[in-house]
């Protein structure tokens, strides 16, 4: 069955799955055991949220697929995630910088999604926002700590912001399928979130004595399936087992 707004569901689900997979790379490598655990927990939340969206797609498409089919059997060009989640982790400052920017956008995205006409997305947003509050707080604390920490932590944080800023813009744009969902009262207008995003991010950066680079050309295309080379590598690792041993189960 043709599912309406499938691409819209996939944009959210893929963004969460890829970021969850990226953060999982820190498991066993965190700078401190508490951070190892924290990022693994955040990753689990994202993967759980993505799973519930894929399950809902499977239910609505009714083609006998499971959530695993969407995660493991689609190629990079079929993924609809924003580019920011596929770029490599870098050092801890870069990972945290991405977490902070992402959680700030995602929190307000979910706040708006709670008012969606789609009852599943409504429930999804009400559930997820509670978790994302903790993610936001965790990353914000680290921005302040690194910004106001040693000369090295401050330098690394500023470098991280310089490196990844070009990927922040795409979160606050609307792709064609997002426009369709907005027109039906189902989707969130990401452009309208920019003002709140800028206000919060600027205030926290000011307190941390760092700044976002000005006049950056913003990269986009991920939500349309145009990805960087990095996504292929994540998918290769994540999908290897299902591709090599089709239908294998735990």
């Amino acid at each position: 069955m043709l599912m309406e707004h499938k691409e819209y569901y996939l944009t959210i689900a893929d963004t969460l799955l890829v970021l969850g997979q990226r953060l999982s790379e820190w498991c066993g490598h965190g700078p401190a055991i508490e951070e190892d655990i924290a990022l693994s927990n955040v990753a689990l939340d994202y993967i759980g949220q993505a799973t519930s969206l894929y399950k809902e797609i499977a239910l609505k498409e009714n083609l006998g697929k499971s959530e695993d089919d969407y995660a493991f059997l689609r190629d990079a060009w079929e993924y609809r995630n924003a580019l920011i989640v596929e770029i490599t982790n870098g050092d801890y400052a870069k990972t945290i910088a991405r977490q902070f920017v992402f959680s700030t956008w995602y929190y307000h995205f979910l706040e708006a999604l709670e008012k969606s006409n789609d009852t599943f997305l409504q429930g999804f947003a009400q559930k997820s926002i509670k978790e994302v509050r903790y993610h936001f707080q965790h990353s914000r604390d680290w921005i302040l700590r690194m910004g106001g920490g040693t000369e090295e932590s401050h330098r690394r944080l500023q470098n991280a912001l310089n490196e990844m800023w070009e990927f922040t813009g795409e979160l606050m744009t609307n792709s064609a399928h997002e426009m369709e969902a907005i027109a039906k009262g189902i989707g969130v207008d990401n452009v309208a979130l920019k003002e709140t995003f800028d206000r919060i991010v600027t205030a926290v950066f000011q307190e941390a004595n760092v700044s976002a680079p000005a006049d950056v050309w913003m990269q986009k295309g991920g939500k349309e399936g145009k990805h960087s080379e990095h996504l292929g590598f994540i998918l290769a690792e994540m999908q290897f087992l299902q591709r090599a041993y089709p239908n294998s189960k735990w």
Binding site: I37, A38, N41, V42, Y134, H138
Partner: peptide, 13 residues
């Protein structure tokens, strides 16, 4: 609070 995330997702340390 030592860490916002503890032994499981539902606990802080």
């Amino acid at each position: 609070m030592v860490s916002q995330f503890g032994t499981t997702a539902c606990k802080a340390l």
